[in-house]
Nucleic acid binder design. Sequence first.
DNA 1: CTTGACCCTGACGCGACGTCAGGCTGTTGC
DNA 2: GCAACAGCCTGACGTCGCGTCAGGGTCAAG
Lengths: 251, 251
Amino acid sequence: MNVGEVAAMAGVTVRTLHHYDRIGLLSPSGRTAAGYRQYAPADLDRLHRVLLFRELGFPLEEVATLLAGLPAGARAELARRGGRRVLLRLERTQAMVAAVEKEMEARAMGIALTPEERFEVFGEHDPEQYEAEVQERWGETDAYAESKRRAAAYSKEDWLRVKAEGDDVERRFAEAPAAGAPADSERAMDLAEEHRQQISRNFYDCPPEMHAGLGGMYVEDERFTAHYEQRAPGLARYVSAAVQANADRQG
Amino acid sequence: MNVGEVAAMAGVTVRTLHHYDRIGLLSPSGRTAAGYRQYAPADLDRLHRVLLFRELGFPLEEVATLLAGLPAGARAELARRGGRRVLLRLERTQAMVAAVEKEMEARAMGIALTPEERFEVFGEHDPEQYEAEVQERWGETDAYAESKRRAAAYSKEDWLRVKAEGDDVERRFAEAPAAGAPADSERAMDLAEEHRQQISRNFYDCPPEMHAGLGGMYVEDERFTAHYEQRAPGLARYVSAAVQANADRQG
DNA sequence: CTTGACCCTGACGCGACGTCAGGCTGTTGC
DNA sequence: GCAACAGCCTGACGTCGCGTCAGGGTCAAG
């Protein structure tokens, strides 16, 4: 096989293979008379391992020594370190996901709208207190002030609909515990599921695990807690538990 | 605050702050008479957001425009894209974690040992069939062949002990369903917990969630399935479920 | 035997900093 | 009152993992 085929198969560019050849990380086992690189199956194997370790975050130089074959003990150690490294990255990535979710849920609650728009949407319920935060969070540059009214992906009607849908579910959520339904009851979980699908429809794809993560924030982030507690005392914990139960039931 | 303090607080280097200043991404709001950068609280806020988006994988230039304030619609779109990007990375990272775990559990079962060593450790139970795979997986370079016998982090005695411990738990696992204990019983979960701690002690730190992930492979990866099924029919599923139940109980 | 897809080797560019070098500043101790 | 030392400044060059030409050779089909 020549470079182009290998590149396509492995999902890398030709240039990458050239690079690996140059630095001696992966030299094809043969060349044609014309100088074309010829990759053997063993080369593909090696490439596979190279890409694995690269994904693990090892610099290419370390990958080379890794594949060169170290004493078994040292290799075990390295694999362990790779595992740790990956776990660290996993944690950080999850933290990022949480941060983005927070941002989007905040947007879902209208916090990230411009003051005027929020006022129009929420009527007098608009909590003026958020203005300062909006400024802090999003700045208020001239360019932004100028363009903010123009191309909004969601029209005011959309926002009103979204808001109404959200209100509806939250209202029914508030009724559930009063009617004696525990947070892991069918009724509560169905509401949670409805909530999840609402988010998926209106904001971003929200699989059950992601929803569970969101649910955690309802009790951890005071802003969300306040939002639910204001509707009914204890509602934040209730919704959070229902969301969790619903995620478990689906997993 | 001056650069050093800000850098320490935010967990970046001074050079990074210099860089952000130079490219205009984050210029301190003041300077002392001597030219020292002076960062105000608002600058820290901005830095915070810069680091968030950087973590999300946005190039610094895009981060700048993001923070400059785009039309609301476009910004929502970008946030969504950022979310997707993060989710993709999360998936890939998880796949990597799975791959590394696989590798390590394989090692735990002795598959990654050299043929000779495996033979000595496992006695005649050594399945010769794995040899080809070991070669495929780890190659058999001269350097490796030469060094493999030397500094092994685990001595043969260690491996024997580890093997005996593993055998013990697996034997008791096999007895549990025969004695009528379901996979989510106290008894099964305790065995799962013992198994988890064994892995943590002998191989790598294995928190419950990671263990749960491992458990999934017992039914998905035919190699592990075969390993357990060979001891007792249905054991793979049983152990997998017990591990899952134990993880849930701890979470 | 031409055309167009593919291959080669330099060589330079880039993003996000790291790492000196050479020099000024600010604080602390004697 | 000043030495010593930590901390700050601005270039300027280096690094990693490639991307992107440029200039030229190769191969299979029509």
